[in-house]
Design a protein around this nucleic acid. Structure first.
Lengths: 124, 124
DNA sequence: TTAGGCAGTCTCAATTAGAGACCTTTTGGC
DNA sequence: GCCAAAAGGTCTCTAATTGAGACTGCCTAA
């Protein structure tokens, strides 16, 4: 971090910010985690992430496609099927992303405890 | 990932989802990155992240405090100063978070290129 | 005495997200 | 032959979230 800050790549006025905003967001992360398991189709994703709306799923998929993280493949079957899969770039993102998920899994007890403490302090 | 999925810890109906939603979000990430450099005060953060509003900064700080990622320390100086600093838990989050930032820094050219390709394909 | 910094809160307007109807094509059941 | 369902979305309308910016109260330096 220190290095690329020295290089003038700070978070303000830089493309890293916008990438982070796109990727470090609720729905994109969830979509990537689903597609990471195996390529999935639109309605499959809709079922896999029950509380996403079609609107947000469409938008999330378009954004991720635009950022080069996944591909949209139209199969000319009847009815036509559309498959979303990770690109190489998308796969390269999964390492840091899964590390974040692992952190969350590992520390959920600590976070829950912090909530408890915070709330009881508020009470007093 | 496979392991904790086998353990029944899937992303739907699980506290990991809510932690991820809180942490993998625009402002909290930015706040953490700032506080990671060194403990900072309210107005310092406001200046460091120029496009955040006071409202969102307040809310982000409260959320992060509630999740046990940072501490709020009131110094009884004149005028009173409030310092926000990472907790041990917060510091432990920085590894995966910085990995994500590094990924963004490393791959920003590829992402930019993907945008260019996507846009020119749209054109045609 | 007025200007400014500190750490916020409050209100109102603009933006964004969610709910759910609708579209087109095609298959399967009755 | 006809209705329902699934495919992959779009469209509209409403609800929730965010942002802009005024305001607070206390204190210091000019």
């Amino acid at each position: 971090m220190a290095e690329w800050q020295a290089m003038g790549l700070d978070l303000h006025n830089c493309p890293i910010r916008s990438i982070l905003d796109q990727v470090a967001a609720k729905w994109p992360v969830l979509i990537l985690l689903e597609v990471h398991q195996e390529p999935k189709r639109f309605n499959m994703l809709l079922r896999a992430i029950p509380d996403i709306s079609r609107r947000m799923l469409t938008q999330g998929l378009r954004d991720l496609e635009q950022n080069g993280l996944l591909t949209r493949t139209l199969f000319d079957t009847r009815p036509p099927a559309v498959e979303y899969a990770l690109t190489a770039l998308g796969r390269s993102l999964m390492d840091p992303l899964l590390a974040l998920v692992d952190w969350a899994a590992l520390n959920r007890a600590a976070v829950a405890e912090a909530h408890r403490l915070y709330d009881s302090a508020r009470q007093a």
